[in-house]
Design a protein around this nucleic acid. Structure first.
Lengths: 255, 255
DNA sequence: CCGATGGATTGATGTAAATCAATGCGTTGA
DNA sequence: TCAACGCATTGATTTACATCAATCCATCGG
């Protein structure tokens, strides 16, 4: 996990001069590690305009940068690190609604306040646009709008899967689904059947809040999977999937 | 619940001649009961083009018309009735991910197969577009694309709320949240504080599958609310909210 | 009119996961 | 070096909800 974004369309991260601030910055909305990023839909000539509109921000681990209910002034594009998105009840119960990896857009609210909070898990880089600037950009770059619609659709599909998980799956099924999802996100060697090493950036508490479980249940379930030879739980945040196929059976409800 | 769509922008449903089929039909994507429908973002001159692209279909209660996993050939706009959207596990466990009322778009999949199933609850009318036609329309009507992005964003917010509900709320909180949501959808007299009569189109089973509960728990919870004087459970599908404020306290987790 | 059917309600019992509680362990900082 | 802290694991106990089961009550077809 380098915190320097790389781009499949360029040999090295591109550095440009930011308009007003004069700061150098890595590319943001136009150059991220995600294959479906706007990289491939924005014309070369438009890039500088996009970049001028953005301000890069580096957010340290644990720092919140979107507060649920606050006025939705900005729009973000994650370029490095992992962000957790969540909603909370007044008594502190918390539901993480998703994790945003590089390439994701945040703050696509229609209302004028944010519907969720966001907090950096590890060191996060975002490019920040004002909402009015964003609206301008949408008017000028139809391809960007198409891209946002695509992203929103993808998130909707993910949200539906998560609703099925939260409403109807058992603890074991939830944890198995989570591990497989994380495997599919952590692209590199892809699922060829062999063991797959994951390096999860989030704590057990985050996983619990994402899966609608408690820390203890997540921990017990991982221990059970270990006892079954399905996974290996390493030091820190490392988990190795030893039998993707058995996890698959579990996750889909056939366990 | 008349099955004839009415439109706030016209005194009576508009009837037009469908291009190829020659059938008469009520207006669809351009004229629904929802205030945020495309009604207000499509120019008058574009209406006939939109209408030509659509085929109206009437779907009887209980009939499914989108199958989870099937090739995503069509795109729909609901014009009357209520549709339930759901995902299922192989052993039959089911999660209803949402209800689509008139004005909603369905089938906004990025992948080439549907991520969810859809079934008519009561008699439903939809306008059906082929996906390729839809893509053409998006190219020609930027306002339609903006409208879809808006709708997707709204659904995303709703999905996040539902994840909080499914992951962290108790049965009582879930049912209270559901009743209040239904109240806000069933617009007419709006929440002025007094009792509010709901006519829910869905069964207890649907409610249970939407809230991640069983039929028995939904029934017991409604009975408990009745015993507390919060609601009145009428014959059939009628429920009257007697104390919106107490339901509100419950729903937000302060009960 | 009446048996069959499907939805809803209510009661008795079981259980998966939450809660309460103790321990270990790696990192941090005085 | 060694508290102090956060995070994780594991065990004992409780509980909210599911499951199993019985009954009621409309609607519907013969």
């Amino acid at each position: 996990m380098s915190d320097m974004p790389s781009c499949q369309f360029e040999s090295r991260p591109r550095r440009i001069m930011m308009g007003s601030s004069g700061l150098q910055t890595d590319f943001c909305a136009t150059c991220t590690v995600r294959p479906n990023s706007v990289c491939n839909v924005i014309d070369e000539g438009d890039i500088s305009r996009l970049a001028e509109a953005a301000v890069e921000t580096i957010i340290p681990p644990g720092r919140g940068f979107i507060e649920e209910g606050a006025p939705a002034t900005d729009f973000f594009n994650v370029t490095a690190g992992t962000v957790k998105l969540f909603k909370a009840l007044p008594d502190g119960r918390r539901q993480i609604t998703g994790f945003a990896a590089p390439g994701h857009f945040l703050g696509l609210a229609v209302s004028d306040s944010y519907a969720f909070g966001a907090e950096a898990i590890d060191t996060v880089r975002v490019c920040r646009f004002s909402r009015e600037k964003m609206t301008e950009l949408l008017d000028d770059f139809p391809k960007l709008e198409r891209r946002l619609l695509e992203e929103a659709s993808n998130e909707l599909v993910a949200a539906q899967n998560q609703m099925l998980l939260l409403g109807r799956k058992t603890a074991r099924e939830r944890v198995a689904s989570f591990l497989l999802d994380q495997m599919r996100i952590g692209q590199p060697p892809a699922g060829n059947g062999g063991p797959c090493r994951l390096n999860l950036p989030m704590t057990r508490g985050d996983i619990a809040d994402y899966l609608g479980l408690t820390i203890e249940t997540v921990s017990r379930t991982l221990s059970w999977m270990r006892s079954q030879g399905m996974i290996e739980v390493g030091k820190g945040y490392a988990i190795t999937l030893l039998s993707v196929s058995r996890l698959d059976v579990l996750a889909s409800g056939n366990g």
